[in-house]
C-alpha cells in the first residue's frame, strides 16, 4: 500500500514527467503518420530518410520514458 506521507515533491514531478513523455511519444507517432502522408504527396529520394528520422524520433521518445522511470 502506498503511504501518501512518503510521497515527495520529486515523486510528483517524476510521474508528471512520465505522463508528459507518454504524451510526447504519442505526438512522435503522429509525426510518423504525418510523414507517411507527406511522402504520398511527392515521391522524392529523400522520403525514406525522412521516414527513418521520424521513426528514430519515436524510438528515442519511448526510450526516454524508460529512462525517466528508472532514473528519476
Amino acid at each position: 500500500m502506498i503511504n501518501i506521507y512518503n510521497i515527495t515533491a520529486f515523486d510528483i514531478v517524476k510521474w508528471f514527467s512520465v505522463v508528459g513523455l507518454i504524451m510526447y511519444s504519442a505526438f512522435a507517432a503522429v509525426v510518423i503518420r504525418q510523414v507517411m502522408t507527406m511522402n504520398e504527396s511527392v515521391k522524392d529520394p529523400l522520403n525514406s530518410i525522412i521516414l527513418l528520422v521520424s521513426i528514430a524520433h519515436l524510438i528515442l521518445s519511448l526510450l526516454l520514458i524508460v529512462v525517466a522511470i528508472v532514473l528519476l
Binding site: 514531478v13 514527467s17 510526447y24 526516454l64 525517466a68 528519476l72
Partner: peptide
C-alpha cells in the same frame, strides 16, 4: 532530473 530534462 537534469539529465532527463535536458534530453527532453
Amino acid at each position: 532530473f537534469m539529465f532527463v530534462g535536458k534530453v527532453t
